[in-house]
């Protein structure tokens, strides 16, 4: 579905440019859940923004369904680090925003919006304003918003980075359920190893800037996952392996 070959992204003028991505080549199949894992500032968010069509690669080719990306693709859902909820609309209006912006009738999508909100336990907050919600609740609303139009591709840029560990675990479970419910391809940017392994069918490890692909790991855990899977031996093997890669890059010292 996605084919990136030798994608390079530089920022700034030629003499003082900063290379964010240095020859990224990745193929992503339909239905995969791929995590881009790496230290802060390694260019993984930049790569995601290139996929979203809001940043263009300096050189290299980036194809979706064989066509070059020249703007936000069709049926795209996106979630951001800061949830980007609109403070002046209530929760339901926020979730319905993609329908509104897409020129569709909001009333047709209201049942789906309510269903999504109920799935993440926000049934009672449909008419609350975002500022009345906690950080975790806000990210749940943002998740529902990105899923409203049943996207084929969902891109998430460290959506849980600012949350406490407990809330983060719960949202990982919620996200897992939501993405399991409908078939979609997901690309998830994170710097949490266990989050990446828990959610993904595949983890791609980035090096520090300039971003390069260091490892491409298939996660052979069962498709349906519970938090308890994190105590299993296989899970531990994956996280240990990835932590080893980070140690080799000099990112973690013991």
């Amino acid at each position: 579905m996605i084919r990136a070959s030798q994608v390079v992204k530089r920022f700034g003028s030629s003499d003082k440019s900063v290379t964010a991505l240095d020859g990224i080549s990745i193929d992503i199949e339909e239905g995969e859940f791929v995590s881009l894992l790496g230290p802060s500032g390694c260019g993984k968010s930049t790569f995601l923004r290139c996929l979203a069509g809001i940043e263009t690669a300096t050189t290299g080719s980036l194809l979706i369904d064989g066509k070059p990306i020249d703007g936000p693709p069709d049926r795209l859902g996106m979630a951001f680090q800061r949830d980007a909820l609109l403070d002046w609309f209530d929760v339901l209006e926020n979730v319905l925003l993609p329908a509104d912006f897409g020129g569709k009738r909001k009333r047709d999508y209201e049942p789906r919006a309510r269903e999504l909100l109920a799935m993440v336990g926000l049934k009672g907050f449909v008419n609350a304003y975002p500022r009345a919600l906690s950080g975790g609740m806000r990210q749940r609303v943002a998740m529902c918003r990105s899923l409203l139009l049943d996207p084929r591709l969902i891109l998430m840029d460290e959506p849980f980075g600012a949350l406490d560990a407990l809330t983060r675990d719960q949202l990982n479970v919620d996200l897992h359920h939501l993405t399991q419910q409908r078939r979609m391809t997901a690309v998830f940017v994170t710097h949490s190893i266990s989050e990446a392994v828990f959610l993904s069918t595949r983890v791609i490890v980035f090096s520090p800037r300039p971003g390069r692909v260091v490892a491409d790991i298939r996660i052979g855990l069962p498709r349906e996952r519970r938090l308890a899977v994190r105590e299993s031996k296989e899970f531990g093997d994956y996280t240990r392996h990835i932590r080893g890669l980070f140690e080799k890059m000099g990112l973690i010292h013991d």
Partner: peptide
């Protein structure tokens, strides 16, 4: 308008009028 909100509007491919009426004016 915060940068994330601008990105959101772009990925949702909202028309300029919609972005103005739903985001910028507020």
């Amino acid at each position: 308008v915060p940068p994330d909100t601008i990105d959101l509007a772009r990925t949702l491919r909202g028309s300029r009028l919609k972005v103005l009426l739903r985001v910028k004016l507020f």
